[in-house]
Computed example of a mutant assay.
Amino acid sequence: MTIKEVAALAKPWVSGSAQPFVRIQSITKKFDDFVAVDDVSLDIYKGELFCLLGGSGCGKSTLLRMLAGFETPTEGSIEIDGQDMAGIPAYDRPTNMMFQSYALFPHMTVERNIAYGLLREGVRKAEAMERVADMLRLVQLERFAGRKPDQLSGGQRQRVALARALVKRPKLLLLDEPLGALDKKLREETQFELVKIQETLGVTFIVVTHDQEEAMTISSRIGVMNAGRIVQVGEPAEIYEHPNSRFVADFIGSVNLFAGHVTVDEADHIDIATPELEGVIHVGHGVSCSPGQELFYAIRPEKLRLSRARPDLPNTFPAMVDEVAYMGNLSIYRLRLPSGRHLNATQVNLSRHVEDAISWDENVWVSWDDNAGVVLTR
């Protein structure tokens, strides 16, 4: 098998021949005059852990509820595993949904909570309990089988809810802010557990979240939503390093954005004059644009370099250190340019203590390589 064929199996979205497992075509959902989801088309492939990422009110949960069958599209269609979902009620769809609240039965044990759906469907008790035991092993809760939900930690309750959703063996699991109720440290730990469980079972997951770090950590691909629309779909590294708009660049992580006009437009480079830097940004590749066109330049804080001596780099500008925030693993520098504009730079703290570290009120040079940023036309 060639490297290209292996990549196509691992990433079916790069293969033109792969068939989507979930196909959303021109879906619109209106609530009276309000358009919650606006003409969304999206393909999701079998075995993906796909994240719908966006701020509150962007339409991501409404889209998830239409997949589950809890909401009916105003326009458009949804197919799951080749079957049109039009007219199919939630209880007959090959899906299960895990809610943020978990909604565990407080009077039932962990074991009975997980078994409840199977027994309601008429699965024989012996088979149901065998499947429950498999799920308990998978989520590492065997020794908690006899406990009630109020005897569990938040992370344990989250795993019970996940096991209950998976024990019915859905083709597609829908998760609405599944880690939102956990504290930061537990949420970070549980993210890796979620990925491990998904990879073990091979079930297709669609996760709704507003947490950019969570989406970047767990997903195979991300669909960024804004005002009811999908504005960009891509792998986490693609979304972060190559945003297609100012909105995506600003929404994902931290970024410094500059507006400017093209002053030099060559096949292998362009120059962008920006008053905020009181200078010219040199970009080491060509861009499809017109001379004089207004562009936006985005550069991440970790791409910036700080030094007391002026470096020999194509993009070098003077700045003053206004603030320094020590975050443990890194330090965040808030820099003030001569124009009054502020920008952020981050530096990794490789040593416990650096005596000559750059500090407050110092005059420094901030610089970056000519391919460190991305040029945006919208």
Rank of each mutant, 00 (worst) to 15 (best):
Q156H: 01
F192D: 15
L194S: 02
V203Q: 10
A165H: 12
R157Q: 15
Q151N: 11
L179P: 09
T190M: 14
Q198K: 06
D183T: 01
G117N: 04
V208Y: 07
L186C: 05
A128F: 05
E142R: 11
R120Q: 15
V139C: 05
G154N: 11
V139I: 13
V207P: 01
A128W: 00
L182Y: 07
V167N: 05
L118A: 00
A215S: 15
R157C: 15
L175P: 13
R164E: 03
L172E: 11
V160R: 03
D150F: 01
R169M: 12
Q158Y: 01
E127K: 03
V139L: 06
R169I: 12
D150E: 13
L179Q: 09
M135E: 10
L118Y: 10
L182F: 03
Y116T: 08
V203H: 09
L175E: 04
E213I: 07
Q158K: 06
F205T: 15
L173E: 02
R131Y: 00
F192L: 11
E199T: 11
Q140T: 15
S153C: 12
Q191R: 14
A161E: 10
E142I: 02
L162M: 13
G180P: 11
M129Y: 14
L138R: 09
K196H: 07
G122T: 08
L173Y: 00
L201Q: 13
G117Y: 12
Y116V: 04
L172I: 10
K185F: 01
L138C: 07
E199C: 05
L162R: 14
M216I: 14
R120H: 05
R131M: 11
R159N: 09
G117P: 13
R131W: 00
A163H: 08
E188T: 12
G122H: 06
Q151F: 02
Q140E: 15
H210N: 08
G154C: 07
D150A: 11
V123K: 11
R147A: 07
M216Y: 04
E130G: 14
R159C: 12
G122A: 04
H210T: 04
L162Q: 01
E199Q: 15
S153Y: 12
L194A: 14
L162F: 12
V208G: 07
Q151E: 14
E214N: 07
I114R: 04
S219D: 10
R157G: 08
E177V: 04
D134G: 15
K185H: 12
G122V: 06
G117F: 06
A128D: 11
Q151M: 12
K125R: 15
V123C: 00
I206Q: 07
G146A: 14
V195E: 00
T204F: 03
A115D: 01
A181E: 09
G154Y: 06
A165K: 15
K185P: 09
S219E: 03
M135A: 04
L201V: 09
E188S: 15
T190E: 01
L138P: 04
L173R: 00
D183M: 05
K185Y: 10
E214A: 02
V207D: 02
M129E: 01
M129W: 10
F205E: 06
S219M: 11
D211E: 13
E188R: 02
Q212C: 02
